[in-house]
């Protein structure tokens, strides 16, 4: 039998060979000092590796894990937590202001049912109106922006860069002149 290869030595040490092959190797090792030394070298190394020390774990590690698991705050996003805290603080401040104004807590509670509905109704109507207005304004701004963008795009494709620079300069001068004229016209005491 020829000398052992490295992979075979490890398989032998791990007892991961067929019985016949293992017996062959055992016989070979009796007559081959080189292979015997190679096996012993790797056996010693493996034994040392098997007894590497455990890394220290703090006594409270399990507690830390369990604290993280049972923490309800971790399930809420930060922005939502901030929103809830802010809203609660505002509510508490309003209540304190009402109470400090001389109203009894009972009167507030009695009026709460009635007034909350009115507040809710009014605020819903105002909210709907505001949303409709915002949507209209948004549409107008969008149409204007699109038209402006298209106009600029068309101009830049039709004219040469020199003409574009000239047009920009003239527009700028026109705006500055208009601004100065208006300032002179509107501000009292500056008329000559």
């Amino acid at each position: 039998m020829s000398c052992l290869r490295v992979a075979e030595i490890y398989a032998y040490l791990e007892d991961d060979l067929l019985p016949e092959r293992r017996a062959d190797i055992a016989t070979h090792l009796k007559s081959c000092p080189k292979c015997r030394q190679a096996v012993e070298e790797r056996r010693y190394l493996t034994e040392a590796a098997l007894s590497l020390p455990a890394l220290e774990v703090p006594a409270d590690l399990a507690h830390r894990v369990m604290a993280r698991i049972s923490s309800p705050a971790s399930s809420l996003p930060v922005w939502l937590t901030a929103f809830i805290v802010g809203l609660s603080s505002l509510g508490l401040l309003c209540l304190l202001l009402i109470l400090s104004g001389g109203k009894s807590a009972f009167a507030i509670l009695a009026g709460f049912n009635h007034s909350i509905l009115i507040y809710l109704k009014n605020s819903t109507v105002w909210l709907a109106k505001a949303m409709a207005l915002l949507a209209s304004v948004g549409k107008v701004i969008q149409t204007l922006a699109v038209a402006l963008f298209k106009g600029i795009s068309l101009l830049t494709t039709l004219t040469s860069p020199g003409v574009q620079i000239l047009a920009l300069t003239m527009t700028l001068v026109a705006f500055i002149s208009l601004y100065l004229a208006l300032k002179k016209k509107l501000l009292p005491g500056e008329k000559t």
Partner: peptide
Amino acid sequence: PALDVPDNEASVARKFELAEL
């Protein structure tokens, strides 16, 4: 590591005490 064991392989592991190894 299907390599052959070299003829003059040095014994490294045995050079050290177990703790040092």
